[in-house]
Write a protein that binds this DNA or RNA. Structure first.
Length: 965
RNA sequence: CGGGGCAUGGUCCAAUGGUAGGACACUCGUCUGAUACGCGAGCGGUCCUGGUUCGAUUCCAGGUGCCCCGACCA
C-alpha cells in the first residue's frame, strides 16, 4: 500500500530455496513396511554379508526367546540391541551374521497345548506320546512364525530364512552328543531328589505347576527321645528322660525322619515338664508350652510308668535345667518315636524362630532344605512313599500300604499312644499349601530319581568342574563389570545341575534300566547311536524303537547279568537345550567362542550360566569372550510392568502410534545397563528427538538439490572458515559416535547426534547459512563451500544412524546426491576426516560466545518492540583489549553470524549499550558492550537484509545484485 | 530373608574431588523463504543421614526407594 509506484517485484523464484522429496513428517507407519519390502526385494542383508565375506567375523548369537506368546517390550529391547550391534559391526567392516533362534521345548508349551486340547474336548490320554508331541511341535512353529514377523517388523536384520530351533532334528541330535560327552567324562549320575508329586495324577510337577492354596493341616508337637549324650554333657540331666521337641504339619513324613535340624546360633533350653525334660529353642519355650497345653501334658505323663504327676507351671525359669547353643547339640542322637531307628541332630541355617520349636523334623526325601541338609550330612534320601502315594514295606506293618494323607490320623494316634505327641491329636493349623494346578488336589514333596551333572567332582587335572567353570568365567569380559561377581556368586553357591524332567515335550535322556535289578546303563556310545537316529527321524525314534536296538542285542546288565531293559522316559531340562546352542549353531555355522552374548540380567542364572556349564563341561572353554547384560523394562515410575497393574505397553501399539523407529530410538537412547523405563511421555520425547534429527537431514538434503559432489564440491583446504568449523565438528561427532558403538554405549550415539543436530547445526550453523544458501550465487564459492559440508553431513549422519534409525537413515540415503551405493547399509561407516584445527575451534568458540551474548541483547530490543526479525537490527559494539583486536579482525563475518543487517565497532558505548559477559571466552579484562539500533537503510526485497542502497532507490542490495548478475 | 544392581531438573542422558551441562517437555517472545518447522529468553536438578576432605554430586558407611536372581511358608 505504501509503495504507490510499480508493484514490488517478486524475487522468490530467484532464490535457491530448499527442495527435497524427503518429507518433514516421517509417516513411519507407512514408510516402514515399504522400506522393509525394499530391503527384501534388493536382498540388502545378503549383499551386506557378501560384501564382508572376506572380513573377520564377529559372532553374536541369538539367545533364543521362548516360542510362546507375542513379543513384549523386553523382547524388543533385547533384539534391537542385538540388531544395533549387528548393523554396526557390518557397517564397520566385520562379517557379522545374525542367526535368529527359538527355544521350543518345555512346560509352558506343553501346558498351552494341553489347554488347547481341552478346549477342543480332546482327552490327552487318548493321544499317543508321539501324537501329543506333534501338537507341541506345531504349536511352537506357530509362534515362531508370529514372533519372526514381529521381530522383522522392528527392522531387525538377520538370516530369517535360516533360523535355528531347538526342535530341529540336527539341534536335538547335537544336544544328545553333548550329553554323551558328559557321560563319557563320568559327569552324569543319578540320585533321588524331592520334587512336587501329584498323588492324584501320579506325576511330577514343576514349580510352575503348583499353586498355593489355603489348607488345613494337622499340627503336631512331637517328642523325640534323646540318646544318652545330653546327660553325659549336662550332669543335671542324668537319669532324666530328655526329649527333642519338633513341630510338623505333615505327620506322614515322620516315618522318613532321619534327623532333627537346629540352628547353630540359637540358644536352646532343657525344660523340666511332666517328669521329662523338653529341649526347645529358648525364645519359643513359652509359645511351645502354651501350645502343648499343661493339662494334656499332665494327663499323658500320668500314664508314664514312674512319672510324677504334677501341674505344669508355664515357662517357670526354675524348671530350666540347662542351656545349650545349637552348635552344642550337633551330632546328638535320638530314637525315632515310631520305628527302630536312631537319628541325629544336624545344623541348618534354614531353621528359624518364626514358628515351631526351633528344632526341625528333617526328612530328606520330603523337603527341599531337608534334602540339602541331608546331602551335607551324608544322610540317605530315604523315601518310603511309592508313586501311588502308599507307604512301602519299610515303614512297618502298622503303616505299610496306607495312603499318606490317610496315614496322618493313624500316625498321630500311634504317637499319642506312645506319649510322644505333646498336643491334641485334633489340633490343626491353617496355612497355604501347594496344590496341583490341574486336579486341585494337595501335592506332596517326594524324592524320585533324577539325573545330575556334578559340580564338585574332581576331574582330569585334579580340579573340580566348578573350579574350571569359575576360571572360565574369570576370562570373560563382562559388560557391565558387575556381571562377573553376579554369575560368580551363583556358580559358587549352586548345587549340582539336575538335568532330568518328568515331562513329555523335550529331548529324551537315552539311558536304559535293567528290568531285573533296575541298574541304569549310561553309555556315551548308546547316546551317540541315538543321536544319529534322532538326526534323521527326530526324538520320536527313542520311543518307538526297541531299546535293545540302541544297546546291542547281546547287552547284559553289568550288575545282575540280565538282558532285558526298559528306556528312561525323562527328558532334559530345557536349559540344557538352549545351553547347547554354542555347539549346535555356532560351531557348525559360525565360530566358537562367540564374541558376545547379549541378554537380560536374568540370564546370569539362565543362558549365560547354562551355556558356560555345558561348554566348559564338554570343551573346557567358555562359549563367549564377552557378555553384555541389559536391565529390564519398567514403567514410567520405575515399577515392574504387569498385566494386573495395567502398565504394560505392547510393542505393537508403539509401532502403530509412533513407528518402530521410535521404539528403536527408545532402545538406543536408554542406558540399558539400568532398568529401562517406558512410558508414553518418554516415547513422545523421543518422537521430538526423532523429528529434530529428521528435520536436520531434511534441511541438509533440501539445500543439496542442485549439488553434484563430483562437480561442485569445494576442496577441504578452500572451505570458508565457518564451513571448515562445521566439518570439524562433524569429524568430532563421527569419532565420538564410533567410539560409543565400539564401547556398547549406544545412548551416547543418540545423545551425541541429537546434540549435534540441535545445538551445532540447527541453532547455529544452519541458521547462519540460510542467507548464503538462499541468496548467494548458486554456483558461487560461498554457497558451494557450504553445500560441500552439508553434503558431508547428509552423507555421514545416515551412516552413523543406520544401526539405530535404520528406516530413516535409508530413506535419507536415497535422497543423497552422488551416492555410489544403493543402500546406506552397503555404504560403510564414515571416517572422522577433517579434524578441527585448534586455532579454528578457539576462534569460533569466541565468536559464538559473542554471538550468544548479542542474542541476549537482541532479545531485550525485541521485547521493547524495537525490532522483530533480527535483520531489522544494527548492532553497535565497543570493545577493549584483546577483544577489540579480535572483533575487528572478524568484523566482516559478524553480521552473518549475528543474523543482523549491520555490525559497527565504535569507541564510545551508546546510551543504551549493554555490557556483554564474554570475559571468560575472550580473555580476562575484555570489556565488550553491545547496543541494538534500527538497521540503516531499507529491507532488500530479495534477501531481506537492510541496505542503504535500497533506501536510496536501488531495487535490491549490492549482494543480491551480484548474485543476480 | 540372602546375592547382584541402580538412584543427576517433569522426561532421557552428560560431566567433575573445586561455579553441575545438553536435549526434550513447559512458560514467554519472535519469524513466516527448514513452516504440523526455525530462532531467542525463562523456569527447573545431584534420594536421605553420617564420615574422609580446605572443599563431596563424585570416595566411604548406613538408610530409603526401585529392578533382577534366589530362598522361605516345616
Amino acid at each position: 500500500m505504501s509503495d504507490a509506484g510499480a508493484p514490488p517485484k517478486d524475487y522468490k523464484d530467484t532464490l535457491h530455496l530448499p527442495r527435497t522429496d524427503f518429507p518433514i513428517k516421517g509417516n513411519l507407519a507407512k514408510l516402514e513396511p515399504r522400506m522393509l519390502g525394499w530391503w527384501a526385494e534388493r536382498g540388502i542383508w545378503a549383499r551386506l554379508l557378501e560384501k564382508n565375506a572376506g572380513a573377520e567375523p564377529f559372532v553374536l548369537p541369538d539367545g533364543p526367546p521362548y516360542a510362546n506368546g507375542h513379543l513384549h517390550a523386553g523382547h524388543a529391547l533385547n533384539k534391537v540391541l542385538k540388531d544395533i550391534v549387528v548393523k554396526y559391526r557390518n557397517l564397520a567392516g566385520w562379517r557379522c551374521d545374525f542367526i535368529p533362534g527359538w527355544d521350543t521345548h518345555g512346560l509352558p508349551i506343553e501346558q498351552a497345548v494341553e489347554k488347547r486340547l481341552k478346549d477342543k474336548k480332546i482327552d490327552k490320554r487318548t493321544l499317543s506320546r508321539e501324537a501329543f508331541l506333534e501338537h507341541c511341535r506345531a504349536y511352537a512353529q506357530e509362534f515362531i512364525d508370529i514372533q519372526k514377523a514381529e521381530f522383522q517388523r522392528l527392522g531387525v536384520f538377520g538370516s530369517w530364512e535360516a533360523p535355528y530351533r531347538t526342535l530341529d532334528f540336527a539341534y536335538e541330535a547335537q544336544e544328545l552328543r553333548e550329553l554323551a560327552t558328559f557321560a563319557r567324562r563320568g559327569m552324569l549320575y543319578r540320585r533321588k531328589k524331592p520334587v512336587y508329586w501329584c498323588l492324584h495324577d501320579q506325576t511330577a510337577l514343576a514349580e510352575a505347576e503348583v499353586e498355593y492354596e489355603p489348607h488345613s493341616s494337622p499340627s503336631a508337637y512331637v517328642a523325640f527321645r534323646a540318646g544318652p549324650e545330653p546327660a553325659e554333657r549336662f550332669p543335671v540331666l542324668k537319669g532324666r528322660e530328655v526329649c527333642f521337641v519338633i513341630w510338623t504339619t505333615t505327620p506322614w513324613t515322620l516315618p522318613a525322619n532321619l534327623a532333627i535340624a537346629v540352628n547353630a546360633d540359637f540358644e536352646y533350653v532343657f525344660y523340666e515338664a511332666g517328669g521329662r525334660v523338653l529341649c526347645v529353642a529358648r525364645e519359643l519355650l513359652a509359645r511351645v508350652l502354651a501350645e502343648v497345653k499343661a493339662d494334656e501334658l499332665v494327663l499323658k505323663n500320668a500314664r508314664l510308668p514312674g512319672g510324677d504327676v504334677e501341674a505344669v507351671v508355664l515357662d517357670d525359669p526354675r524348671r530350666i535345667l540347662a542351656y545349650a547353643s545349637g552348635e552344642e547339640l550337633e551330632h546328638l542322637t535320638y530314637q525315632h518315636p515310631l520305628l527302630e531307628r536312631t537319628g541325629r541332630v544336624v545344623l541348618g541355617a534354614h531353621v528359624t524362630l518364626e514358628a515351631g520349636t526351633g528344632l526341625v523334623h528333617t526328612a530328606p526325601a520330603h523337603g527341599q532344605e531337608d534334602y540339602e541338609v541331608g546331602l551335607k550330612y551324608g544322610l540317605d534320601i530315604y523315601n518310603p512313599v511309592r508313586g501311588d502315594g502308599r507307604y512301602d514295606e519299610t515303614v512297618g506293618a502298622a503303616l505299610q500300604g496306607l495312603r499318606v494323607f490317610e496315614a496322618n490320623p493313624i500316625i498321630l494316634e500311634l504317637l499319642a499312644e506312645r506319649g510322644a505327641l505333646l498336643n491334641s491329636k485334633t489340633d490343626t493349623v491353617e496355612h497355604t499349601y501347594p496344590h496341583c494346578w490341574r486336579c486341585r488336589q494337595p501335592v506332596i514333596l517326594s524324592a524320585t530319581s533324577q539325573w545330575f551333572i556334578p559340580l564338585d567332582k574332581p576331574l582330569a587335572g585334579g580340579r573340580s568342574f566348578r573350579q574350571q567353570v569359575l576360571e572360565a568365567v574369570d576370562g570373560v569380559r563382562w559388560v557391565p563389570e558387575w556381571g562377573h561377581s553376579r554369575i560368580r556368586g551363583m556358580l559358587e553357591a549352586r548345587p549340582d545341575w539336575c538335568i532330568s524332567r518328568q515331562r513329555s515335550w523335550g529331548v529324551p535322556i537315552p539311558i536304559a534300566y535293567c528290568e531285573g535289578c533296575g541298574e541304569a546303563l549310561v553309555s556315551a556310545e548308546v547316546m551317540e547311536r541315538v543321536a544319529a537316529a534322532v538326526e534323521q527321524e527326530g526324538t520320536g525314534v527313542w520311543y518307538r524303537t526297541p531299546v535293545k536296538e540302541f544297546l546291542g542285542a547281546d547287552t547284559r546288565c553289568a550288575s545282575c547279568g540280565q538282558g532285558e531293559f526298559r528306556r528312561e522316559t525323562d527328558i532334559l531340562d530345557v536349559w540344557f537345550d538352549s545351553a547347547c546352542m554354542f555347539s549346535a549353531v555356532l560351531e557348525r555355522r559360525q565360530r566358537l567362542p562367540a564374541d558376545l552374548f547379549l541378554e537380560g540380567s536374568d540370564q546370569h542364572r539362565g543362558w549365560f550360566h547354562s551355556s558356560m556349564l555345558v561348554a566348559v563341561g564338554t570343551r573346557d572353554m567358555s562359549p563367549y569372550r564377552a557378555c553384555l547384560t541389559h536391565g529390564f523394562v519398567v514403567d514410567g515410575q520405575g515399577e515392574k510392568m504387569s498385566k494386573s497393574k495395567g502398565n504394560v505397553i505392547a510393542p505393537e501399539k508403539i509401532i502403530q502410534q509412533y513407528g518402530a523407529e521410535v521404539l528403536r530410538l527408545w532402545v538406543a537412547a536408554s542406558d540399558y545397563r539400568n532398568d529401562v523405563r517406558l512410558s508414553d511421555q518418554i516415547l513422545q520425547g523421543l518422537s521430538q528427538g526423532y523429528a529434530k534429527i529428521r528435520n536436520t537431514l531434511r534441511y541438509a538434503l533440501g539445500n543439496l538439490h542442485d549439488f553434484e559432489p563430483a562437480r561442485d564440491a569445494v576442496p577441504a583446504a578452500e572451505l570458508l572458515p565457518l564451513d571448515a568449523w562445521a566439518r570439524g565438528r562433524l569429524a568430532e561427532v563421527v569419532a565420538r559416535v564410533r567410539r560409543a558403538y565400539e564401547d556398547y554405549e549406544f545412548h551416547l550415539v543418540y545423545a551425541t547426534v541429537v546434540d549435534f543436530c540441535a545445538a551445532d547445526l540447527s541453532a547455529v550453523y544452519f541458521d547462519i547459512l540460510k542467507d548464503t544458501l538462499y541468496t548467494a550465487k548458486a554456483a558461487g564459492r560461498a554457497r558451494r563451500s557450504a553445500q560441500t559440508v552439508l553434503h558431508e553431513v547428509a552423507s555421514a549422519l545416515p551412516r552413523l544412524l543406520a544401526p539405530v534409525m535404520s528406516f530413516t537413515a535409508e530413506e535419507a540415503w536415497q535422497q543423497l546426491p552422488g551416492r555410489t551405493v544403493e543402500s546406506v547399509f552397503l555404504a560403510g561407516l564414515p571416517q572422522p576426516h577433517g579434524a578441527m584445527e585448534p586455532a579454528l575451534a578457539e576462534r569460533y568458540a569466541k565468536l559464538f560466545a559473542v554471538r550468544s551474548a548479542v542474542q541476549g541483547v537482541l532479545e531485550v530490543a525485541r521485547r521493547e518492540k524495537l525490532i522483530g526479525s533480527s535483520l531489522e537490527a544494527r548492532v553497535v559494539l565497543t570493545a577493549s583489549g584483546e577483544a577489540r583486536d579480535f572483533l575487528q579482525a572478524h568484523q566482516g563475518e559478524l553480521p552473518a553470524l549475528f543474523i543482523v543487517s549491520q555490525v559497527e565497532l565504535t569507541e564510545q558505548p551508546g546510551p543504551r549499550a549493554q555490557p556483554l559477559s564474554v570475559a571468560q571466552a575472550l580473555g580476562e579484562g575484555s570489556a565488550v558492550t553491545a547496543e541494538v539500533l534500527p538497521a540503516r537503510g531499507a529491507k532488500c526485497p530479495r534477501c531481506w537484509v537492510y541496505s542503504e542502497e535500497v533506501a536510496q532507490g536501488r531495487e535490491v542490495c549490492p549482494k543480491c545484485r551480484e548474485a543476480l548478475s
